[in-house]
Design a binder for these strands. Structure first.
Lengths: 208, 208
DNA sequence: GGATGTGAATCCATTCACAGCA
DNA sequence: TGCTGTGAATGGATTCACATCC
């Protein structure tokens, strides 16, 4: 296929496809069509085909996609072949929940370091991980950790972000309600829980 | 302004604008321009203007937007004038964190009921709320609760969703990694934590 | 002068429709 | 025949540029 910039939206759907494939019976047929996959995930089949086509000819015309090969292919694209270690910044209510969250396993991502500002929490061992002072963030580069999850109060978010960037972190999952300023080579994905909830009442039928 | 369908993206930005306005000094100038607001929130100023223009002439040419009036206006649009009560389904790690989450206050949304499947948790009182059996979900309609937060395992998600819809819930914030089938008059907003994290490695510089 | 509100233009993503291959 | 891969068409949302109004 000729060169095309891969849309962010496509990248975002690849993990969804991967999870869909993982939940597929491994024993039965070895192949799956774009239509079958689309049906399970509630997306359109041309979307699946176009998304995958950005990365070369992965499927077989007349047959479909080999399930195992497709899984491997998506993992390779997303760089999820070998386990990624992530740093969790902030061990408050949300941080603690994220540390126990099991939904990262499918994607071979694992939280392997936890940082805190609160001195009372530093040094505690949680889920076999010793909570470190945020000043230790600078050690992330030599520890090979380049992904971070930010679950701290908004006020400190930019300070800590700067530290993360200094430490060579290239991807940040931001749970704070702040815009994080970062260079273009650092990817920030925002999850704004408050905003997501605040949208709902708008859609309620009038009178409810 | 003539009739135009309001894009979902616009609705999603309104809470962001609202939060931005709330953090603005209340004492100083009474007005704010689209440019000032855009700067704080890191969006483009024509975007702010177009978003707001969907709802009539809110601003004053040559002056800007009256901060207090704009806040009130956005709250009215989003139906956030009076406090909305929300039901939390699932008191696991994530559910517990969400119950303590303080980021809903800005938007006048408050969790006022908690439901669980696990009998060991039912009856416990957390944050002054007594955890109820999921079978009680049917009581939501007469309790005037029409928004729900779903933080349960994927397996049960559709079953519980059906219960919520039966109970008249019109908006669901879905933290499960499943597609929820719902009628068009029920709004589902998805937060897929695993997928959001799984996207990050793709953007890392090669070799990292 | 200065900032809004908005049609027009642009950009981006989704969907279609079909050529080409197994 | 059946399904992929893809250029073309469509559909939406963002951005521009300017007429309009305080």
């Amino acid at each position: 296929m000729r060169y095309h910039k891969v849309p962010d939206e496509t990248i975002r759907r690849l993990p969804v496809y991967l999870r869909g494939l993982c939940s597929f019976p491994n024993d039965g047929s070895r192949s799956i069509s774009s239509q079958q996959l689309a049906e399970v995930l509630h997306v359109k089949s041309p979307q699946v085909r176009k998304d995958l086509s950005y990365f070369g000819d992965i499927g077989t015309p007349g047959v479909g996609y080999d399930i195992q090969k497709l899984k491997k292919h998506i993992r390779t694209i997303l760089r999820l072949n070998n386990t990624h270690c992530a740093a969790l910044i902030g061990y408050g209510n949300l941080g603690a929940a994220l540390l126990k969250y099991t939904g990262f396993k499918t994607f071979c991502v694992e939280i392997s370091a936890v940082f805190e500002i609160n001195p009372r929490k530093i040094g505690r061992v949680v889920q076999k991980i010793k909570i470190e002072d945020v000043s230790n963030i600078s050690s992330l580069r030599k520890r090979g950790i380049s992904v971070a999850i930010l679950a701290i109060p908004a006020l400190e978010s930019q300070d800590v972000t700067d530290k993360l960037i200094d430490a060579g972190v290239g991807g940040i999952l931001n749970f704070t309600p702040s815009y994080l300023s970062a260079p273009t080579n650092v990817k920030v994905v925002n999850i704004d829980i408050g905003v997501s909830l605040a949208c709902l009442p708008y859609y309620l039928p009038v009178g409810a």
